[in-house]
Design a protein around this nucleic acid. Structure first.
Lengths: 236, 236
DNA sequence: ATGTGATTTGTACTATCGTACAAAAGATCA
DNA sequence: TGATCTTTTGTACGATAGTACAAATCACAT
């Protein structure tokens, strides 16, 4: 209803709608949903507050549209990479390829979408931490299929590990992934400048390397069969 | 100035101040800082909005006091456990003990503080995601020493791994830890009910097991010396 | 050029926010 | 009991939130 596909893009500014989406994405991803006002977004996009209402009706609607824009392409990319990874013969190589297929699209731009997947992934991390309702619904119904596909693929490479353990470890992977995008400066700080937390390529390599090893850890039940648990119990 | 240490605790309700702190902690940890109003907190604590201002002056002051309450004890507990872990002879056992010393206090109650460290850790996760300023300052100056101590201890157990890699992997550990507390229900969902994401003891075991393996992964530089990187490059 | 529909602007409304402050209530001890 | 200090209550104020809506402005087909 909103858009008339004429030869040229209409509107005074070249696609104000996109500018608003980009500004909102950036602000939400760095400050959370509730800390950012519609007026903040409008100002960052060089738009009028009323424009936001016009294009997206409500603030929730704006967030919803951001998700709609990214979920499809990112899942598509992941599916392609996962399919390719599944064809890798060597089991060890395949595991790494599968992990990489999960991680790479989250860090890098989803081909056509401006600004890249990193910003969107960070947004998802923040919304998940805030317990945002709109995000929760979309996420569960959009990403769970993909998550299951990855879990299955990993399970194929590690048939001796119980599925439960795979789920836990892939959960840890997502947490690590999120956190790397949320506070990259912490890596720079703790490494005393020797590492750049914001360097996506490096973060990916580190994450893939660590995660592959984590997946390959022995299963919990059969872990360290004849060794005592050291030092502390886990309940207070 | 505020408190007079008489024989009995004063105030109509048995320690309204504590009730407000507990309510704020819970609400902040589940909804974020900006989504929770002072009135919400007061209502949850069975108090009057004015009481919050009286005890903590501002909303930021309330958050600050929550941090003050927990940072000391949790760091103390971690130091104790870390010291004990350092005394473990076997190098593999020591690594596990060190990781456990880092993880356990974050999941379980800090001995004397009601409600436990899990709630506070979740709060930290959420504040970090929201980029909260008050939290950022406190965190950097309170936890970085502890983080360095742990990184050093882990490096001792794995002298052949570059410090940079250890930093990255401990960053992943913290991310995984945070995420486990932020969305435990995702684990239950993805495991189709076979695992309980909210079971702290189980989460700890899974996290420790996976993390120890991640730390033990070969260093990045020397990783897979004669093998091609499979399938995808890391930049778009 | 002019009318028409899409977009942008400006502004206003109501609700709620954090905070301040005076009055009430409770506790403590001479 | 009455004086004094601490705590709680009730209320109010200015700022800002999300959203609605009419007027102004634009792009474009005729």
């Amino acid at each position: 209803m909103v858009r008339k596909p004429t030869s040229k893009e209409s509107a005074r500014k070249p696609n104000m709608r996109e500018a608003i989406l980009a500004a909102a994405e950036e602000l939400f991803a760095t400050n959370g949903f509730n800390a950012v006002s519609v007026r903040d977004i409008a100002q960052a996009a060089g738009a009028n507050p009323g424009s936001v209402t016009y294009h997206f009706k409500t603030k929730d609607g704006l967030l919803l549209e951001i998700y709609r824009r990214h979920c499809g392409p990112m899942n598509l990319r992941r599916s392609e990479l996962l399919a390719a990874a599944r064809r890798v013969r060597d089991l060890q190589d395949r595991l790494e390829a599968v992990v990489r297929a999960y991680v790479v699209p989250a860090f890098t731009s989803g081909s056509d979408l401006a600004g890249g997947g990193a910003r969107f992934t960070r947004l998802r991390a923040v919304m998940s931490a805030e317990g945002n309702e709109v995000a929760r619904k979309i996420i569960a119904q959009t990403f769970d299929d993909t998550s299951h596909a990855f879990i299955d693929a990993i399970h194929e490479s590690l048939p001796h590990i119980p599925r439960t353990d795979i789920v836990w470890r892939s959960h840890f992977l997502l947490g690590a992934l999120y956190y790397s995008l949320v506070t990259p400066e912490r890596v720079s700080r703790l490494s005393r400048g020797e590492a750049d937390g914001g360097d996506a390529a490096n973060a990916i390599e580190q994450l893939v390397q660590a995660t592959v090893a984590a997946f390959q850890a022995p299963a919990l039940d059969q872990a360290a069969p004849a060794r005592r648990r050291p030092v502390v119990s886990s309940k207070t």
